[in-house]
Every structure is written in structure tokens, then in C-alpha cells.
Amino acid sequence: MTSLDVKPEDSEKTIICDAAMTLGEWETGEILRNHSYPESNQIVIHRDVKVTLPLQISATYTIYSKLASGTFGSVFYGEEKSTRRPVAIKIVEASMAKTVSYNGIKIPKEAALLQKIPLHPNIIAFIDWAEAYPKHWIFVFEYHGFGQDKPKSTLNHYLRDVARSRGKQGLTENEAKKIMHQLLSACSHLEKHGIYHCDLKLDNIVVDAEGNIKLIDFGLAIEGKRSRGRTGSIFPPEMYDYYIPYELSTAQIWVLGSVFYQLFEATKPYHEERVKSKALGRVMYSKHNRPSNECVELIDWMLKAEPNHRPPSVRRVMHELFRRT
């Protein structure tokens, strides 16, 4: 189900599409065939703003509690009423989200990209989206985590739980390899379809009780091969030159190397000034959780300062992950 408000200032009517809509249908004006319905009276709070949910969202899902809240959005735990299937409902201010235009109508770029990605076991499944009053986007995803009673299910929180339970930071090598294999598989799938996440970090990876992960939050995703400037929160050296375009594929390898290191040490491999100056050198590990030499060499390769000195592709990293370790 795909939906869109008629106008941000008209909170009484919402256009509803009863079936999944392709981007091609947007371009040919298929949305004009749909009907209008009033907003519901269900309200949720995002950053002290009362957001009125569209009728098709409140009629389909029950919202129970807030999972997380950040600069760009709030995420709530909910269930589909007819099936009791758990879902995650994200609310984002329209002014904070990028949009694309189809047939003169603006839709959130995140929804447009997610509708183009075939399902993958390590990428969160996108279900629905809508525009809510006042000027907010609503996204509905499958829920992946520990459940409503344990809302903090990001990889960042998972590492903290591990540290508390074991008395030391970081995962074992086998645990880290399992997570990295899943993350690399997700990134390879996206790259195959011309999309880069561009905000890979521990807080954008959710994990369940079995240690299986899914990649979330595509608000900064890019469709293409090159970019410039900084995006996300982990920056390889080439992102610090705002005027020179860089290859997203090799920049992503560096970011993945940083995430891999954090699975062992729960901190970034380098301070920002070292990254900016490209004076990187070999990363350091604590004695209690140092991975094998083969694993250390792979991370060092991924974290090379020069893009052309890194592994040439995500698929190559996946191959080396199990060949070397």
C-alpha cells in the first residue's frame, strides 16, 4: 500500500493506493485514480511535535512504544492488526528528508529507493509509507530485534550488552565474522542494484537474539557510483576533500573496515585528524581481544588511505574474509 497527502496544508484528505505502486506508475500518473480519505485521530509524539497518523496507517497498525529517537526521526514498535506481525514505524520531519519528484509530485527518496531493492535477508523489508500532518513522512518496516520488551536492538547496544555480560569489550572472531558476512552480503546486494547505503554504522544495524543482522535507515542512500563531500558518520580520507568526486564502492570498503574493527574494539580505528591527514598506519588492538593475524591483515587492507590500495570490491572482501581467517 502506498499513499500520499494531497497537500501538506490539507490535513483532511489523503490519497490512498490500494496496491503496491511502482515508480513507473508514478511517472505515468497512475496515482490520479485513487480516492481520498480523512486523517485518523491517532497521534504520536516526535521531538515534542504531535504527529497525526494517516487513516490507512492507524487502521492497519497498532503502535505500542517508542524504540528510538534521533536527530532525523523517531521509531516506534507496532503490530499489524490483522496478523499480529511486529513492525517498526519511523516518523521523519519532511524538512529533514530528501525527496524526488515523479510527475510533479514529491515523494521521499528513501521510499523511492527501497521500492527498487529486491528483498534480502540482511536488509530490513520496506512495507509502506505515507505523509502525515504536519509535514512528516511515515515509513513502515518489518521489525527485527529482541522484541518490545527490549527495544534497544542495534549492534551498538548489542556490543554494550556483550561488554556488560563478559566484562570486556568486543565480540569473538567467529561472532564478528558472522556479522560481517551478513553485512557484506547486504552491501553487495545493494551495489548490484546501483545503490549505496552511505551511512553504515553500528546504530544502523539491528540484531536479533540469534545474532542475525539487518541493515536499516536508508535516509542518506545514494543511487549512482560517485559522490563528493561527506555523508554518514564514518568518513574515509577521500571524503574530506569536498571538491574531488570519489568512488562510492571504495569509500564503502573503508567504512566497512571501520565497522569490522569496531566489532572487536567497540571504538573507531582512528581519530579524525589522522584520517584527514591520511597518516593512518596500522590500527591497534587491545591484548584481550586481538583477532588472528589474518583477520588483522584484512582489516588493514580495507583501511588503506588510498582507495586504489583497498580490496577492489565487497565481493572480494567476502572471499578474503573466509580465505584468510
Rank of each mutant, 00 (worst) to 15 (best):
E12V: 00
Y246G: 06
G24P: 00
I195D: 02
Y242L: 12
V283T: 11
A59R: 12
K135D: 14
R316K: 15
R164N: 15
Y102E: 01
P121M: 08
L215V: 07
I89Y: 03
E247Y: 08
S11Y: 12
F76K: 00
G219E: 03
Y240C: 04
R160W: 10
I222K: 10
E306S: 13
Y270M: 07
Y261K: 04
G70E: 05
E110W: 04
I124S: 02
V255I: 15
E25L: 07
A97T: 08
G194Y: 06
R226L: 11
C198P: 00
K150P: 00
N41I: 10
K276P: 01
T231V: 12
E273M: 09
Y285E: 02
I31M: 13
E110V: 07
M21P: 01
V275T: 10
T71I: 11
R166L: 15
K268S: 10
P269T: 02
K276V: 14
L190W: 07
A176W: 05
L32N: 13
G147N: 11
L248W: 03
R282L: 12
P118N: 11
G257I: 06
D208F: 08
A209S: 15
E272V: 12
A19H: 15
K214P: 01
M180F: 06
A305W: 06
E320M: 14
D128E: 15
N289H: 12
D18Q: 13
V314C: 04
A266V: 08
S153L: 00
F72Y: 15
K7I: 05
L171P: 05
R160D: 14
E306Y: 14
Y133V: 04
Y143L: 06
K7Y: 13
A305R: 07
W301V: 00
N212P: 02
L220G: 00
A112L: 02
M318C: 05
A111T: 05
N122C: 12
M180D: 04
L183W: 03
A19W: 11
L32V: 10
I123M: 03
V6L: 14
K106M: 08
K178A: 13
F260A: 00
R315N: 13
I107G: 02
L183F: 08
M1G: 07
L119M: 06
P236K: 01
H35K: 14
H271G: 12
P311T: 05
K13I: 02
H193C: 06
V207Y: 05
C198L: 02
Y261L: 08
V75T: 14
L298K: 04
